[in-house]
Design a protein around this nucleic acid. Structure first.
Length: 302
DNA sequence: GCTTAACCTGGACGC
DNA sequence: GCGTCCAGGTTAAGC
């Protein structure tokens, strides 16, 4: 049970379920009534939307409604971008984006906890979303702190640094286990908030810093930058975005491999088409290509 | 600077 | 039932 009351705010341009299910984060769960449960900044939140999508309801730990409102607005970045205006501009220029937006408007970029986001995407290499969820749940259960509510807070770097590679392999992380142990050990001896402090850095500086950690390449660094550090120009070029880019935005790369130079060309192409908030456009295109396709496949199987 | 192999694992798919 | 492929990558070695 949540100690706070149910609050609400009016916000029309949000598709809560698509946003929370768009592959940006992996530890929020959906209740039978459709509401989503998760943690933001150590605070439990439960979010839902009215049927017409115009009202966002939220429950939170703690009695301070203003703090809860601030946490929700910050997590969903409700004050950071006029998404409909951006989408209208992008749709006018690009048919592929227009189709993606028309099929599922309202997918926003989140502002997650940077350290949890760092470890989450370190686990995400070559793994389907279901497996990523499983790995993170296992790690949180083993090394995190479970409160009276039964919800487990993701472990901090210092806690993860006590994990052995062997134990993490037993939990199903495979070759990612070494990466988690090494990154946690490095982070644990740095001042707390080292990753979060990169919000003040440029995208280039943040990526340079993140890729110094063993196991963090360009794609993972871009995920951390976009989904937790407010770097709206970050373009995580995964297998789906690479496919989309070659088909639509950088056709000169057809038949080529994803080398560091071509990765940079994809990023530049997205910036050419979508400007300095290209990361938001990327996420909407990604959802249509990856998540939507998976959902259709699941329905077909049923 | 590019290509390739290796790294874990579970589910989907074809036979 | 079994083998193969693929999934939100990264690293290191070889050329």
């Amino acid at each position: 049970m949540y100690s706070g009351s149910i609050n609400n705010l009016q916000f029309e341009d949000l598709d809560l379920s698509a946003t929370l299910n768009s592959g940006q984060m992996f530890r929020w769960n959906r209740d039978e009534d459709g509401a989503w449960r998760g943690m933001v900044g150590g605070r439990r939140l439960r979010l839902s939307q009215s049927a017409n999508g115009e009202t966002l309801y939220y429950e939170s730990d703690g009695a301070d409604a203003n703090e809860a409102t601030g946490a929700v607005r910050s997590f969903l970045r409700l004050d950071d971008a006029d998404l409909p205006a951006m989408a209208a501009e992008w749709s006018a220029k690009d048919l592929s984006f227009a189709e993606a937006w028309a099929s599922r408007p309202g997918i926003r970029i989140l502002r997650q906890d940077p350290e949890e986001c760092f470890f989450a995407f370190l686990c995400a290499s070559v793994a389907p979303i279901a497996r990523i969820r499983g790995m993170l749940t296992a790690v949180a259960t083993e090394f995190g702190v479970t409160g009276e509510s039964g919800y487990t807070r993701f472990p901090e770097a210092g806690q993860l640094a006590t994990a052995s590679e062997v134990r993490l392999r037993e939990l199903g992380l495979g070759f990612r286990a070494r990466r988690i142990v090494e990154a946690a050990s490095c982070l644990a001896i740095l001042p707390q908030g080292e990753i979060a402090a990169l919000r003040q850095a440029s995208l280039k500086e943040a990526k340079e810093r993140l890729t110094q950690f063993f196991g963090v390449g360009e794609k993972i660094a871009d995920c951390i930058c976009l989904f937790s550090l407010d770097k709206d120009g970050a373009i995580p070029v995964d297998t789906h975005i690479w496919r989309i880019a070659r088909a639509r935005y950088a056709p000169e790369l057809a038949g080529k491999s994803l080398t560091p130079q071509n990765y940079a060309k994809v990023t530049a192409a997205f910036h050419r088409f979508f400007g300095d908030k290209a990361g938001w456009a990327q996420q909407i295109l990604f959802y249509r290509q990856a998540v939507n396709r998976d959902d259709k496949a699941r329905k077909t199987i049923k």
